[in-house]
Computed example of a mutant assay.
Amino acid sequence: MEVVICRDEEEIGRLGADVVSRLVRTRPEAVLGVATGSSPRPVYAELVARVRAGELDLSGVSTFSLDEYVGLPEGHPASYRTEIRRELTDPAGIPPERVHSPQGSAGDLPAAARAYEKRIAAAGGVDVQLLGIGSDGHIAFNEPGSSLASRTRIKTLTRRTREDNARFFDGDTDAVPTHCLTQGLATIMQARHVVLVATGEGKARAVAQLVEGAVSARWPATVLQWHPHVSVLLDEAAAAGLGLAGYYREAWANKPDWQGL
């Protein structure tokens, strides 16, 4: 796991976009795992800017979202498919038929979960997975207590997660659905490169557990300590709880330029 403490969100966006850009230049039909919420938006904004400047072509990329609320109608403004299309895939010119998400409106949710796993496998697996992290340590919607071997499935959202996400529902926690379809922790672990973004002091405790804590279902993101290629991009506030912050800064400052993330 490599930890990079960045000056600001602009640097986070640039570093995250560099990972995707390098991948796409060598593999134009790459598979990108995408997360919603505020954390990855600097990366999406930088990718879109590069596409609009003619520096990057994402038209051959396929995307797979981490999760989707259960019960929201198609096209709901707070649905994650709508958000991904708004923030990334539409402005970046990724064709709609290449944009995939769990079917939270399906009549048979377990079948939809199994079908999503098969779709990811049929695409060749995820090359780069972008992640955020919840204040309680969840990644995707794998809440505390989730099995470290879990696959795409229906999950009940905690009150804390629903309160965190109420900002996308006009501040109304009760309007946030109680269930979702989410990729499991084992599904996420199969991505070849994971790029996790965290900003703000509200994420500091979760980040400290992720990087320096014990691997435990109490903090689901800690399973990433077992992944061979994880890049953690933080601002100063999110890094505030790290005991080895000085080492991470020194390691990044002295990393060979050719190596990248």
Rank of each mutant, 00 (worst) to 15 (best):
R114M: 13
R192L: 08
V194T: 10
L224W: 00
L244T: 13
P77C: 13
V51R: 00
V207S: 03
G132I: 13
F169P: 02
P110A: 13
V4C: 10
A49W: 01
E201D: 15
M189N: 10
R151F: 09
A214Y: 10
D136L: 10
L185G: 08
S62Q: 12
P144Q: 09
R81T: 14
L72R: 02
E74N: 09
A166I: 07
K118R: 15
T158H: 01
I120V: 14
F64P: 04
Y69N: 03
T63Q: 04
R14V: 07
P220N: 12
V70D: 01
R41E: 15
P73S: 09
E55W: 01
V70L: 03
G260S: 06
K255V: 09
G246Q: 07
R14Q: 06
R27D: 13
C6H: 02
H138T: 04
E212Q: 03
E11S: 04
R114H: 14
G37Y: 03
E87T: 14
Y69L: 03
A239Q: 01
L130G: 02
Q259P: 06
T36D: 06
G54P: 05
G241Y: 05
R119N: 12
E97V: 08
A140W: 00
W252A: 15
P42G: 09
V194R: 00
T26R: 09
R159L: 15
R167V: 15
G171H: 07
E10S: 12
M189T: 10
R52M: 12
W226P: 10
D108A: 10
L58F: 06
A92V: 08
I133S: 02
Y80F: 14
R167F: 14
H229L: 12
G33N: 02
A251L: 11
E87F: 11
A123E: 10
T173N: 09
R151E: 11
A186E: 15
R52H: 14
G71K: 09
P177Y: 03
T156K: 08
A113D: 08
P28V: 08
R218Y: 12
Q209V: 04
L181C: 02
I5T: 05
